[in-house]
């Protein structure tokens, strides 16, 4: 099984007057795992279903390697797909579910049985093969769905929220397993998720979507360190980045009558100032007042009111100021983020 390069060129999808996906250009390297991340209705699942061949694109091209596929029936595209509900066939045993894609290809029964057993062993569900989907656990159903997607050795693996129906504990374990398996097999994979920790943990690169448009396509750490706009800045990272809307003057960010000193490289005029809670401190020089202090376990999360805005600050465990206490906000200058009035990132 070898992965293949997947390219989307000018891909768009309209449902009547509703624009589900505006225009998308994306290049997924062979063997790479890419996550489509975004809130519901952002166009990520629509894109996945166009790659699978369930939806016809309104415009644009899809390439698997050098082959143009957007006009092909799903069965001629050589993709495997795992659905959120797993979509196992309830009237068939797990064995027959996994074997289904192979029997459609008219592969000899002995060969089918051999390949089903092989993939079932790999995923640790060999003992469930003669049961029906309703008789096995959620985690086993999820792995059976994965086995069904992988048994035909597809060139592209599509995963639509494959973990969101699992318990929190199994989910962390399952995402590690899927990632390990994907790297072992080397199949090009696209994962659709609304859960940023899933996307960041599993993918080589993450494509962040919002309102039918690609916001940023980058490796997880870059997404975190250099968000391309205020949407990504707010969406990726927990607790979310502090974003203040105000006016830049030389050397300072002005928020009502507050002046926050900023390092060079900032834009001029109206814009946004961003810094993450872990890059903020209570030992700076912007006056404020504590409103809430929550214990998160390893750290405490302090909410601070400065002027018209609220800001979150992560502080070490020992420190938990009472609400109403005055505090002085500061931030690490080297980790500041500048955005212009339209929300686009400015500078490095």
């Amino acid at each position: 099984m070898k992965g293949i390069r997947v390219r989307l060129k000018g891909l768009a999808k309209h449902f009547g007057r509703v624009v589900a996906l505006r225009t998308l250009d994306l290049d997924v390297r062979a063997g790479e795992m890419v996550a489509f991340l975004g809130p519901s209705g952002c166009g990520k699942t629509t894109t996945l279903l166009m790659i699978a061949g369930i939806y016809q694109p309104t415009a644009g091209e899809i390439y698997f390697g050098e082959r143009r596929v957007e006009h092909l029936h799903p069965r001629d595209r050589d993709v495997g797909m795992v659905f959120q509900s797993y979509a196992l066939y309830p009237h068939l045993t797990i064995f027959d579910n996994i074997a289904f894609p192979l029997t459609l290809k008219k592969i000899a029964p002995a060969e089918v049985a051999r390949r089903v057993r092989q993939i079932a062993d790999l995923l640790g569900i060999a003992h469930t093969l003669d049961r029906r989907p309703g008789q096995v656990s959620g985690g086993q159903q999820q792995r059976a769905a994965l086995a069904r997607a992988l048994v035909k050795e597809p060139q592209v693996l599509l995963l639509d929220e494959p973990l969101s129906n699992l318990d929190a504990q199994i989910r962390v374990q399952a995402r590690g397993e899927i990632r390990r398996l994907q790297q072992e097999i080397g199949v090009t994979s696209i994962l659709v998720t609304h859960d940023q920790s899933e996307a960041l943990a599993m993918a080589d690169r993450v494509a962040v979507f919002s309102t039918g448009e690609l916001q940023q396509f980058a490796p997880p750490d870059e997404l975190y360190r250099r968000p391309a706009n205020t949407f990504v800045a707010r969406f990726v990272g927990y607790p979310p980045m502090n974003l203040l809307e105000g006016r830049y003057e030389p050397g300072a960010f002005v928020l009502d009558d507050l002046r926050i000193p900023v390092p060079p490289g900032h834009p001029a005029g109206r814009g946004w100032l961003g810094f993450r809670p872990e890059d903020a401190t209570l030992d700076g020089d912007v006056p404020g007042r504590v409103t809430v202090a929550e214990a998160l376990g390893r750290e405490n999360l302090v909410t601070l009111r400065i002027g018209p805005a609220e800001v979150k600050v992560l502080v070490p465990q020992g420190r938990r100021p009472a609400p109403g206490t005055p505090a002085r906000l500061g931030y690490r200058r080297e980790h500041v983020h500048f955005f212009d009035a339209s929300g686009r990132r400015v500078g490095a």
């Binding site: 069965r75 797909m81 659905f83 509900s85 066939y89 289904f100 459609l104 035909k152």
Partner: peptide
């Protein structure tokens, strides 16, 4: 019947007719 089930069958490689006979009808 769930749409995802039909989508899964399409990706698995069924034609509309096979989908009807082997997936939809038994369910």
């Amino acid at each position: 019947l769930s749409w995802e089930m039909e989508m899964a069958a399409l990706v698995d490689g069924v034609s509309r007719w096979t989908l009807f006979w082997r997936i939809a009808l038994p369910m």
